[in-house]
Amino acid sequence: MRKNNPAVRVLVTALMLLGGIAFILPFLWMVSASFKPEIDVFRYPIEWIPKHWNAYRNYRDVWFGDYPFALYYWNTIKVTAWTTLVSAAVSSMAAYGFSHVDFRGRNALFVLVLATFMVPSASILVPQFLIFRWLHLFDTHLGLVLVGSFSALGTFMLRQFFLGLHPDCLDAARMDGAGHARIFARIAVPLVRPAIATYAILRFIWTWNDYANPLIFLRSDHLATIQLGIQKFASESGVFYSLIMAGTVSAVLPLIAIFVVGQKQVIEGIALGGVKG
């Protein structure tokens, strides 16, 4: 294919870069505001690079001030890590079962799993809430982990990869007398590890960002996750916008970090889910 003229490409790249920066201006504003003293936050024209720096005090006040921000953070790390772990484990097991174990009722059960995918989470909030109160899972982190861990999406996505494994290498193991547990742990999982990693990263991002479930299933302040925390912080701390911005930057930062590190996995995971449709 004939490549475009390099001069044109450079020009378009420059224009796109400008557009891209304009696109993330809200983020740049957020970061910049989190570094400023309060009175400079809304100064116009906008000082993108703060004239007066107040970053240290802002972040110190957010993290070690009146709000238990560090606790919210810890709660989020705990819930997110457990959800990611449980979800990856349960989804891989189910994916293996639905692809390489030939048991009775497999197709019917798989259709059932797919059908649950269509139910919007908002539609079942009330009964979930009731069941959780009944099981004493309401207002616990365990309940939140369970809600986030069982989704048909993981089963469906990982099943595609397990199906892609060559049957010969699994059969060879079976000839040698290996049972399903052994084949799963020693052969199948290591082979689809990249796919499991992709799913785990996606699940991590979704759980970290989850707002609706903590809102419904948690009540105690000391259990709140970061998303509840910053919203509470924003609506209660009134006019300290520089602090609010320091809080939102702190909440978004781990995700940006994960995204930059696991960029390839995230993008491939999203693209794969999308293109396969």
Binding site: I21, I24, W29
Partner: peptide, 19 residues
């Protein structure tokens, strides 16, 4: 460019809404 345009999608809606 992928990273730039994808940033809003991976950021939390709460943070985006507050900003």
């Amino acid at each position: 460019f992928k990273v730039l345009f994808f940033m809003p999608y991976i950021s939390s809606i709460v943070a985006v809404a507050i900003v």
